[in-house]
Amino acid sequence: MGIRRSVLPGLLAALWWAASGPQLEAGAFQVVPVYVYLEAGNPRATLTVSNTGEEELTVQLQAMRWSQDEQGRDRLEPTTDLVFFPRLVKIGVGQERIVRLGLDKPQPAETETAYRLFIRELPVAKPGETVLRVAIEISLPVFLSVPKPRPQAAISGAQLRQGSALLQVLNTGNTHLLLKKIRVIGRGQDDREEFVQEAMGWYVLPGIERSFAVALPQDSCQRCRSLLVSIESEEGSLERTIEVDPAQCIPPPTESRTRP
């Protein structure tokens, strides 16, 4: 995936990928791997940052402790637990550098611990250049594994409301849950398929319940008798059926703005 530079000042593109591919590309650099698992007995790993652009590249690294609140929203806090070297990396055109990371004094735990490692490009303006550069930032998940992983998830709630299928996913295990895809299939008379809507998922950390919403086509929704909602994760899939109230297929009215 390539990111173009822009003339907009002060813009920071923060890319939070839940990638499943072997490498992550942002603008003029690539990172391998796209996520890191640290073993409690040997919490060490390496990353490879490659310069795929046409100019010398400088990137800066920062580690954050990653958690989620009661609504499943991501929270990031500075941490010194995750150590890495170097913190500032200069990479020539077509070259690559190794970043070493690990945990300082890891403590045994029954629940997986999560971090985010941010890698941010530091754009350098050339003399006489009038185009302002964009800082590209990517965020890699880093997990401290547990001796006895126990992945477990459930769909704790599902309903149709104001034109969207609303889904609550509860992670009752001791490791993270990565929802790759959320799918809603509308079924009408004689179980005929009326539509299929899909949305990207996200991480649900241990002990967290997170809500997801999938907007539905109103006309097709009102022809349905039921909705089959499914989630696809690394551990498998879960399904839930929702009975359709046609009145709930109507999205909320949009606010109209009038010019003064």
Rank of each mutant, 00 (worst) to 15 (best):
M1A: 14
S6V: 03
L8D: 05
L11G: 03
A13V: 12
L15S: 10
S20V: 14
G21L: 14
L24F: 13
F29W: 04
Q30H: 05
P33W: 10
L38S: 06
E39G: 09
E39F: 09
A40K: 11
G41T: 15
T48E: 15
V49S: 01
N51V: 10
G53V: 03
G53F: 05
G53P: 04
E54N: 14
E56I: 10
D69G: 04
Q71R: 14
G72F: 02
D74R: 06
L76S: 00
E77A: 12
E77C: 04
P78A: 13
T79L: 03
D81R: 13
D81P: 04
V83H: 01
V83P: 00
F84S: 03
F85Q: 14
V89C: 08
G92R: 06
V93H: 06
Q95S: 13
R100F: 15
D104R: 13
K105A: 08
P106I: 01
Q107P: 05
P108K: 07
A109E: 14
E110L: 15
T113S: 08
F118Q: 05
F118W: 04
F118E: 06
F118S: 09
I119V: 12
R120F: 04
L122R: 06
T130C: 05
T130D: 07
R133D: 02
R133W: 07
R133Y: 08
V134R: 03
A135G: 10
E137W: 02
P141H: 02
V142Y: 00
L144W: 01
S145N: 13
V146C: 07
P147C: 06
R150Y: 12
R150N: 11
A158Q: 06
Q162Y: 09
S164M: 03
A165M: 01
L166S: 03
Q168K: 15
N171I: 01
N171F: 04
T172E: 15
T175Q: 05
L177T: 02
R183G: 00
I185T: 11
I185D: 06
R187P: 00
D190T: 05
E193T: 13
F195V: 10
V196E: 11
Q197K: 14
Q197Y: 02
A199D: 06
S211D: 11
S211P: 04
A215L: 11
L216R: 01
D219W: 05
D219E: 15
S220V: 15
R223W: 00
R223G: 04
R225E: 08
S226W: 06
L227P: 00
S230E: 06
E232R: 11
S233E: 01
E234S: 06
E234M: 12
S237R: 11
S237C: 01
E239F: 08
A247E: 08
P251H: 02
P252G: 12
P252M: 13
P253T: 07
S256M: 09
R257I: 13
